[in-house]
Amino acid sequence: MVLNALIVDDEEYSRKSLYFLLQENCPEVTIGAIAKSVAEARNLIEEQQFQLVFLDIAMPKENGFELLPTLQKRNIMVIFTTAYDQYALKALKAEAVDYLLKPIDIVELKTAVAKAVDWAELIAQKDNDQVRNEAIRKEEKSSRKLSIPSTHGFNVLETDDIIYLEADSNYTNFHLKNGEKVIISKPLKEFEDSLSNVDFIRIHKSVMVNFKFVQGYSNKNGLQIFLTNNVNLPVSRRRSSDFLDRAKQYFNR
């Protein structure tokens, strides 16, 4: 991971020195811009996206701490760079990645950058997990109900109420846990994509079952499964490997 960084320092020598040190020793960082003041830094942050700011503290007009609300609003990490050690506690309370005293030591700089990269990767992983979990929740929510056509409109079935589906030419028989059988004038293929995301699996060209109602299987006389409604169904040889893999995943989760 490469972080786009902003250097904020009112002293030209400090800006150039830090830029050189980063260029020579920290390939994980790209310097996207350099600012001479907090006001200039705010403008740059409005124009560009930064993951990290190297921030001096003692500057004219506004000190580095006055930039923190802008950085926190955008979740930008900060490494303080200052010649004064009396700000260390305040910097830590501001949840800075690190606090470097000038003149900046190369080893300490590399350690601080490594911390920033670790933080960024953790944040990215957390964000990815949240996005993925939200997508799964939305998918499950939308897939828990299945709309099926009826003579005068449509009916809605809870997928958890469906034990298995059975193809019958261009019709599909829905076998429900209450013992009912609902016949729909659509082929089984029409339902396969929407149901495969909610624990259903095609075990035969004519049958799709809900893992929730599978209570066992045997390969004694060809692979077959036993359902909770006392129905036994064969698994085709072509689909047996996929069924066994999915069964292990389902029952071990």
Rank of each mutant, 00 (worst) to 15 (best):
L227P: 03
I225A: 01
L146D: 01
I163A: 14
K205R: 13
L223G: 02
E158F: 10
S218K: 04
V231C: 05
P234Y: 00
V209E: 01
L146P: 02
Q224E: 07
I184T: 09
L233R: 11
H152P: 01
V214C: 08
F226V: 10
L176N: 14
H175V: 09
V182R: 09
S147E: 04
K220A: 08
K205M: 01
I225R: 00
N155K: 10
N170L: 08
N197D: 04
L176V: 03
F213G: 15
N229Q: 02
D161S: 13
E166T: 05
Q224T: 07
F174R: 03
N170Y: 08
V207C: 15
N155E: 14
I203L: 09
L233S: 05
I184D: 06
L188C: 04
Y164P: 11
I225G: 02
L233K: 12
T228D: 12
L195M: 06
I162G: 01
N173G: 01
G179D: 09
P234N: 02
K181S: 13
T172K: 09
D199L: 06
S185M: 12
K212A: 07
L223D: 01
T159Y: 04
L188H: 02
G153W: 00
V207M: 15
K212M: 05
G216T: 05
K186W: 03
N219C: 07
M208K: 01
F213W: 11
T228P: 05
T151R: 15
T159A: 12
G222N: 06
F154K: 10
I201Y: 07
S147Y: 01
E190L: 03
L227Q: 14
K189T: 11
R202C: 07
N219F: 00
T151M: 06
F191H: 02
S218A: 10
I148A: 04
P187M: 00
V231Y: 05
L188V: 13
L176C: 07
L165T: 11
D168N: 15
N170D: 14
L227M: 14
V156A: 02
S194C: 07
I203Q: 05
N170M: 13
E158C: 04
L195P: 12
K186F: 02
V198I: 15
N221H: 08
L176Y: 05
N230G: 00
K205A: 09
L157C: 06
I203K: 03
N221D: 13
D161G: 06
L157Y: 11
N230P: 00
F226T: 12
F174L: 05
P187H: 02
Q224R: 13
L146F: 08
V209G: 00
F226S: 13
G179R: 08
N219L: 06
R202T: 06
V214A: 04
I203R: 00
I183S: 00
D199E: 09
T151Q: 12
L188Q: 05
D168S: 09
Y171F: 12
H175K: 12
E180H: 03
N178H: 07
N229K: 00
N221T: 02
F191V: 15
A167I: 15
D160Q: 10
L227V: 11
V231T: 14
N155Y: 04
K220H: 10
D160L: 14
F211A: 02
P149I: 03
F154H: 09
Y164D: 15
P187T: 05
I184G: 05
Y217A: 01
K181Y: 08
Y171E: 09
N155L: 05
F200R: 14
F226D: 11
